[in-house]
Simulated assay, not measured.
Amino acid sequence: MKFLEVFGAERIPWERIDDIKDSAPEVIVWAIPAMFFFVLVELVISYKQNKNYYDKKETLGSVGLGLGNVLISTWIKVSLFYMAVWIYNIVPWRMELNWWTLVPCYVFFDFCSYWTHRISHSQRFWWATHVAHHSGEHYNLTVSFRLSWVQYLKVIFLFPVAVMGFHPVIFFVTNQIAILFQFWVHTEYIRRLPRFFEYIFATPSNHRVHHGSQEKYIDKNFGATFIFWDRMFNTYQKEEEQAVYGITHNIEHKANPLHINFHEYADMLRDVKHARGWKRKLFYIFGSPTRIANAKKQAQRA
């Protein structure tokens, strides 16, 4: 009965939206000091141990991307919250604001994140919103800041979570926790964890594979929090050899956030401009990044 009683919540009056939005916990804002503290600790330790985990230009680029995202997300959060409330008000199976609903919301959110992530590697249009995260050639905690400023386009793939009827506050807290979870997996210092943990969660070991540019590692381990999605959908790869980080054609201007964000769009426009016929042009926009890279290699050999 407790489970059934959570459904059938009243609509949120528009005049109360700002109050509800302001009451939602700012989890990421609270966590920012701790995140920078651990980055500093990792940076100092790696320097003292003469580890090549940090590169000055890449670190500046990652921090620049992160600061830009903080500014952009502040503005976008308001629009998305209004949209989440609008969806919440039109679905007939609205859930009350109960904190235990965070658990099913998180699991379903992560399921959608898995497919969002997988699509981002499958079509160049969406890859352009994600490639910034993979462009770093060094793996450290600042890579978690290395997120594209246009990644918010992918919010459309998370609409099913909102349509499920979760309260907007639950939806936004879930999103923030999911983002924070991905901070700690971007490190070389945490090696393999106990087997049951590696089997369920996207650990540093599992996620290092995802950032590897070797053929066996490309397009593997898409899970954001839970790695069992990859096991279910046959995209799992165990960490076997040291990953070579970066993309197949590493970028120049490693400290320039604008270049990191938009270099793929510039390449896409150039490819479309020189392609003959609409079919070929569409291929360079929506084709698989791997197939496009192979097509370019073949063209260069010809």
Rank of each mutant, 00 (worst) to 15 (best):
H117Q: 01
H117M: 03
R118I: 03
I119T: 04
S120G: 15
S120K: 05
S122P: 00
R124H: 09
F125V: 11
W127K: 13
A128T: 05
A128V: 11
H130K: 06
V131C: 11
V131Y: 07
A132R: 07
A132M: 09
S135W: 06
E137I: 12
H138R: 13
N140M: 06
T142P: 10
V143P: 05
S144Y: 07
R146G: 12
R146M: 10
R146L: 14
L147I: 14
S148F: 07
W149H: 13
V150R: 02
V150I: 14
Q151V: 13
L153F: 15
L153Q: 00
P160E: 01
A162P: 01
A162R: 02
V163C: 05
V163K: 04
V163P: 02
P168T: 10
I170D: 01
I170V: 13
F171Y: 13
V173S: 06
T174R: 09
N175W: 10
N175C: 12
Q176C: 14
Q176F: 14
A178E: 04
A178F: 11
I179W: 09
I179A: 15
I179L: 15
I179V: 15
L180D: 01
Y189W: 15
R191F: 13
R191V: 11
R195S: 08
F197L: 13
E198G: 14
E198M: 12
